[in-house]
């Protein structure tokens, strides 16, 4: 009996290995041969050269487009997008929280909608908003604001699900209506988690906002993609440096704030 089982297990192992091998053979089948073009070395060298000798003049230019203005725009898009989604996701979060509803299908439908929103890539959303409201930072704000609902709504609803039932029962016992229960028993318990998740999402949105400009939705991405396509590597260098410094500094600040909240 046990021998039979062992052999069965061995068989299964080989089947798994065969499946994985087949998947990888399939995955490699469409890949072109990896050939390094004659120019690749030279281009890489000039990229590295540009990255290590950034164009410092671009940092501040009182006349026109410069790095600081681009970064500030990016920051503004990320911040406003986060605020918009933090407000808009609240009804979705209560909809998807399993402990607040009597029937199972209500939170399940909410969770499903949130996962659809999450799946919709923000860049695609930004492209659609550009078609609708025209290119610019506003399209970026809308894209981040809508896309972030998916993740924030899920995290918020999970925060609501972990609250202590005591206060809810106490308020129910003393005859509070649903709105009063929500306001006095649920909201005070979930505020710290909400704030912490919002800051976390802000960190993510800041990274996203740096690339929105590539498709024309405002921020530092626009001068960056121009610099890449015109092979202006010292400018790419300074912009990359600016993005990295900004993201690291804000991650640090937001980390400090989150530690104080929780």
């Amino acid at each position: 009996m046990s021998l039979h089982k062992q052999q069965n297990k061995k068989w299964r192992k080989w089947i798994y290995i065969a499946i994985i091998a087949a998947i990888y053979i399939w995955a490699f089948s469409q890949m072109p041969a990896f050939e390094i073009q004659a120019m690749a070395g030279e281009i890489s060298r000039s990229i590295l050269n540009g990255l290590f000798n950034p164009d410092w003049d671009f940092v501040y230019d009182p006349g026109g487009e410069d790095l600081l203005r681009g970064l500030l725009d990016t920051l503004a898009i990320a911040f406003l997008g986060t605020i918009v989604s933090a407000v808009l996701c609240i009804p979705f979060a209560f909809w998807a929280a399993r402990n607040l509803h009597r029937y199972k299908f209500i939170p399940e439908s909410g969770t499903f909608i949130l996962s659809v929103i999450r799946t919709f890539p923000e860049i695609v959303m930004a492209i659609l908003f550009i078609k609708a409201v025209g290119p610019g930072a506003f399209a970026g704000v809308l894209a981040l604001g809508i896309h972030s609902i998916g993740m924030l709504g899920k995290l918020y609803s999970e925060a609501i699900e972990t609250i202590d039932d005591g206060p809810i029962e106490a308020l129910t016992a003393s005859g509070a209506n649903r709105l009063q229960i929500l306001w006095f028993a649920v909201v005070p318990q979930v505020i710290p988690a909400f704030l912490s998740y919002t800051l976390y999402r802000f960190e993510i949105n800041l990274r996203s906002a740096t690339i929105l400009g590539i498709i024309g939705a405002g921020g530092i991405g626009t001068p960056l993609i121009f610099a890449i396509t015109s092979r202006d590597w010292d400018r790419v260098g300074i912009i990359l440096l600016g993005i990295i410094v900004m993201v690291m500094v804000l991650d640090f600040l937001s980390g400090l704030l989150r530690k104080r909240i929780v």
């Binding site: 500030l72 920051l75 406003l80 506003f138 405002g218």
Partner: peptide, 8 residues
């Protein structure tokens, strides 16, 4: 400030 910056 962000709304002003992004023309929102």
């Amino acid at each position: 400030g962000s709304a002003y910056k992004t023309d929102s």
